[in-house]
Design a protein around this nucleic acid. Structure first.
Lengths: 151, 151
DNA sequence: TTCTTATATAGTAAATATTACTAATAGTTG
DNA sequence: CAACTATTAGTAATATTTACTATATAAGAA
């Protein structure tokens, strides 16, 4: 009678046990479009769910990301988890912090029309992947594990 | 006899005093194209310049950013300072962490040709500015100071 | 239902990044 | 050289995230 996501089935389908904590977090971040930080999830839920630790929120969001249920990106130094796992872009308000989704399929180089009402201050586009050097090392089986942290 | 940047003049022109610490940091990050974190600057310089604290590096990079000498962006949870203050985009290697500059003026929606040799894993595009709500509040003189941290 | 077992969790601590504060230092200007 | 003020190192505080561990518990087997 509704198109609501069946959270228990979704979690089981990804091999998760159905614990109250996990169900609560999933209900908040997977049942509807959401851009959340771990802290925000914890603050939102802790009152009604005292049996939930910030620790578990971090772990759970990380698990959901690994399972492809959430996407993760960085904004202003915080990890933001996004229930929209389809390719898309974002706009973030520097005043209130709201984040909105933007389509990727415009031909324009400029900001998409959804931003007509916004007063854009900065725009940033970043690609993450393997550079030619590391692809070579990868092929040679010598890929290091230093990761991006070495910047 | 060279086109090298005159760091002392540059700093004086922005109202900075010429201290050894500031000159050292400036020489590293302003005299040539650079993508650096505060920690990286500190680690690079501390051996030859014991009279330099990580604290000062943070402060100095922040001052340079405020003065428009550096641009700041986030990648993998770290603040990265970029001596290229002209509009441009970035690619970051998920293996070695190298960051390269990319032009903004291609018409293509796809990754720019500089990335032909890369194996791109993810792409992210983000616009930062004032949303319609906050623009209204701004006009009404009620702009809050909560900032992006409230996400 | 009861038992078994591996997973999940809270609590604690640790690691990392960044900012705040302060007393002492040291450029700069006159 | 003297005075003024920016600058700095050191320390501490804050915030985010990860690591570790003993306990609790969900899920499947008996």
């Amino acid at each position: 009678m509704s198109t609501a996501i069946d959270i228990p089935s979704l979690l089981r389908g990804h091999g998760f046990r159905l614990t109250p904590q996990r169900l609560t977090v999933a209900e908040l971040v997977l049942s509807k479009p959401a851009h959340v930080t771990a802290r925000k999830v914890y603050q939102t839920l802790k009152e009604d769910h005292p049996a939930l630790s910030l620790n578990t929120v971090y772990l759970t969001l990380g698990q959901f990301e690994k399972s492809g249920l959430l996407n993760r990106f960085e904004i202003n130094g915080n990890a933001v988890f996004d229930s929209n796992t389809m390719p898309h872009n974002h706009a973030c308000c520097s005043c209130c912090g709201v984040i909105i989704d933007l389509p990727v399929h415009q031909m324009e180089q400029q900001a998409p029309s959804l931003l007509n009402q916004w007063q854009i201050q900065t725009e940033h586009r970043i690609w993450v992947g393997l550079c030619p050097n590391c692809m070579d090392e990868d092929r040679a089986g010598k890929m290091n594990k230093s990761g991006v942290g070495s910047i």
